[in-house]
Design a protein around this nucleic acid. Structure first.
Length: 732
DNA sequence: AGCACGCCGACT
DNA sequence: GTCGGCGTGCTC
């Protein structure tokens, strides 16, 4: 008797479906895709496990139609992780399983035959061909070198700074088929020289601790808290070396695509002979599939990726590193709302392999776990190379006239820094020219038609853009309400700061780095290169600048309007504020050059601000944790947010009220709401939320389970959509 | 999410 | 008399 199988199908179902395998000749393996009849048509599905034998008659079961894959796409561990995640996040299993697959393997619901498998085989073949070509090209480029091994720095030595011309010459002479990895994302970084650093004493101690912990039988996640510039990456590199020596892979998760080139460059320089693959949103489907296949086969020894990379199958995974573990972008904010850091921890636990979380500013829940002894905790407190920590200065701007958004004092400091041939960074977390465009005559404001918010004025193309739905329209200077000929802007954005600074310092290059100037492929890299070229310049940018980038000649950071979050109603805002300020400040000063940070604020005496600046992030964070404990907020309680959106606020609230009523009598659940979301209307839809809070994790799980079991009983007015967000980090 | 079934309004 | 609107309910 052939076994029945549990199959995940890409539908919003919270259960697996059982199919018979009696039409299939070969034994089925878990992790293979199958084609199954579903309703009145066919669908792609993924085989999860054999169904436990049951008394039920099998006559009702439909048969699996085809097995698509010869070898499983996902291994047992990953299947386990994904099923765990579907339960933990109360998200439909099929959706969870299929978001873990690369898009190239996800589509084509109804397939008459094995077309998909053929696509994969061709890709595999194309991949091998491409690699062979590249290796041939490299061999030719370096054929005169005594050792015929390719090293990232080698070509630089052969060709010097004119390497592009050199390679072009080789191509013209027919000695080289094409540029070396020129089309691949790591072309330009590979050719910079790599100084191999000795570990300083602190790094050595830290590394030794990590190694000791990683060899223990009882593995715990390690929190590596290292101030900016303390050389966390060097520790990562040695830990990866350990894995390479043991022929094991390392998975490295980074919060955003912007950070991958930096780290990738370090990895390539350090491990020029290893296959390193990247998985991030900038790849097309084929590139992503290739990287995924290389990781699955074990050919890639280092896998670097953003949050969805946590699901990448690895033939021999030995270590997971989560860089900037506090970063909010590790949490998926739509659909299957998972936290990549938390899933990475779970994955490491299932595999019984070590995991290391690195950051200068741990998330409060991580710090709490470390304090409670659930995580190991190691520190790198000193900047490497004897660099001094930056000097903070609170600039009270109440009653001050600002020029270009900057106080007189800030402008003086900028001028002095530029005169020393050093670089300045102006940080403001708002892109565009100004957040408000209004009529001085009648008070009209440019509002988004789809959202409950003002539109941001972008001077560049004289457009109004909604930062919530990306709606976009031209504007002239006339008020559409009263025809007044001169609209006014109010407030500051990066564009305006850039323009003002250009006028103020006409002889200094001003470079703006935000999403608008870096959306083109390679634009960020190009701008970062400009920063390397110029000795003195002014950088203007958003939080993109706060993360990871190394600017050796930058000595002054001016932070504008950061104190907004001191008044935010959201309890996460303060935590993020502390992290952002600390990260931004970390950009200032290196080696012998003392860094200076000026914070312009209207709240110079705010106690938490002073704690942060005078006693540092950890003390600040512990104070916030005390607050959280007093108010029984996470991590001292467990939350889930049920969100709903609809064509009217009434409908959205009504749906949530039904959820509310289901739990109203439960003493173990605290309910807040339903209430309209802080941003009431977004993209023509009205949004509401219901917050659910329990003192124990298992209670939360139990009640969410209860709610989803009653899903069918909820009467949704037309067009209502709702979803569950477990461990929410943003309440917008 | 699809997809079909089903029960009421304007069409050749 | 039918075509089709999208509300409702199911998918092993």
């Amino acid at each position: 008797m052939k076994p029945n199988w549990l199959i995940a199908v890409p539908r919003p179902l919270r259960t697996l479906l059982t199919y018979s395998s009696h039409l299939i000749e070969q034994p089925i393996q878990a992790g293979c895709r199958v084609i199954v009849p579903l309703g009145h048509s066919r669908s792609l599905g993924l085989a999860i496990a054999e169904a436990p034998p049951s008394d039920q008659e099998n006559y009702a079961l439909k048969p699996i139609h085809t097995v698509v894959d010869e070898t499983p796409l996902l291994d047992e561990h990953l299947l386990g992780l994904l099923q765990w995640a579907a339960r933990y996040y109360h998200h439909p299993i099929g959706d969870v399983i299929f978001t873990a697959l690369p898009v190239a393997l996800r589509d084509g619901n109804v397939l008459p035959d094995n077309t998909l498998w053929r696509v994969i085989s061709q890709t595999d073949a194309a991949l091998k061909l491409k690699r062979a070509k590249r290796q041939h090209a490299l061999y030719q480029a370096l054929i005169e070198q005594p050792e015929r091994e390719w090293n990232a720095a080698a070509l630089r030595h052969v060709a010097g700074s004119n390497w592009r011309e050199y390679v072009q010459g080789l191509i013209e002479k027919g000695l080289l088929e094409s540029y070396l990895p020129s089309q691949t994302q790591y072309s330009d970084y590979a050719l910079q020289t790599a100084p191999k650093l000795e570990l300083n004493e602190a790094q050595q101690t830290c590394l030794a601790q990590c190694r000791k912990w990683n060899q223990s039988d009882t593995l715990q996640p390690i929190l590596l808290q290292g101030v900016t510039g303390s050389g966390k990456t060097e520790v990562y590199l040695r830990l990866i070396e350990d894995q390479l020596a043991a022929k094991r892979q390392t998975l490295v998760l980074v919060p955003e695509i912007g950070l991958t080139p930096q780290l990738l460059q370090r990895f390539i320089q350090h491990f020029p002979h290893q296959t390193i693959v990247c998985l991030h949103s900038g790849l097309n489907d084929t590139e992503r599939l290739n990287a995924w296949l290389q990781s699955r086969s074990g050919e890639a020894s280092i896998i670097l990726g953003t949050r969805s990379a946590v699901f990448t199958p690895c033939a021999a995974l030995g270590l997971i590193l989560v860089d900037e573990e506090h970063d909010g972008s590790l949490k998926q904010q739509e659909g299957f709302r998972y936290h990549a850091r938390d899933l990475a921890i779970k994955r490491a636990a299932l595999l019984r392999i070590p995991i290391l979380l690195g950051t200068a500013t741990p998330a409060l829940e991580t710090l709490h776990n470390a304090e409670r002894g659930r995580y190991h905790h190691t520190h790198l407190l000193q900047r490497a190379n004897h660099a001094q920590p930056p000097r903070f200065e609170v600039q009270d701007i109440r009653g001050h006239v600002l020029q270009a958004g900057l106080s007189h004092h800030s402008l003086q400091a900028i001028r002095a820094t530029l005169e020393r041939q050093e670089q300045v960074m102006i940080f403001i977390n708002r892109r565009g020219f100004a957040p408000v465009l209004l009529c001085p005559n009648c008070g009209w404001q440019a509002m988004c038609e789809a959202c409950d918010t003002q539109m941001t004025f972008h001077a560049h193309k004289s457009r109004l853009i909604c930062h919530h739905c990306s709606a976009d329209r031209l504007t002239d200077n006339h008020c559409p309400a009263c025809h007044h000929p001169q609209l006014q802007t109010q407030g500051l954005g990066t564009e305006r700061i850039e323009l003002n600074l250009r006028q103020h310092f006409p002889d200094t290059p001003v470079i703006r780095i935000d999403r608008d100037t870096t959306s083109r492929k390679g634009a960020l890299q190009q701008r970062l290169e400009m920063v390397q070229k110029h000795e003195h310049l002014i950088l203007v940018g958003t939080q993109m600048l706060a993360k990871g980038h190394d600017f050796p000649n930058l000595t002054l950071v001016v932070v504008l309007e950061a104190d907004q979050s001191l008044f935010s109603a959201e309890y996460h805002a303060l935590e993020r504020f502390g992290q952002l300020i600390t990260q931004v400040a970390g950009r200032a000063g290196r080696a012998q050059k003392m860094g200076q940070v000026i914070l312009q604020t209207t709240q110079p005496h705010h106690p938490l601000l002073l704690t942060l600046l005078e006693q540092g992030y950890t003390v600040f964070a512990k104070q916030l944790l005390n607050e959280r404990q007093r108010w029984r907020f996470p991590p001292f309680s467990y939350q889930a947010l049920i969100r709903a959106d609809a064509l009217t606020m009434e409908d959205a609230l009504n749906t949530l009220q039904q959820f509310h009523d289901l739990l109203a009598e439960c003493p173990e659940v605290q309910l807040f709401g339903p209430i309209p979301a802080p941003l009431e209307k977004r993209a023509h839809r009205y949004r509401a939320q219901l917050l659910l809070q329990c003192t124990r994790r298992d209670q939360r799980h139990h009640y969410l389970q209860f709610l989803t079991s009653k899903e069918k009983n909820i009467r949704n007015p037309k067009g209502v959509r709702w979803s569950i967000d477990v461990d929410p980090v943003e309440l917008t």
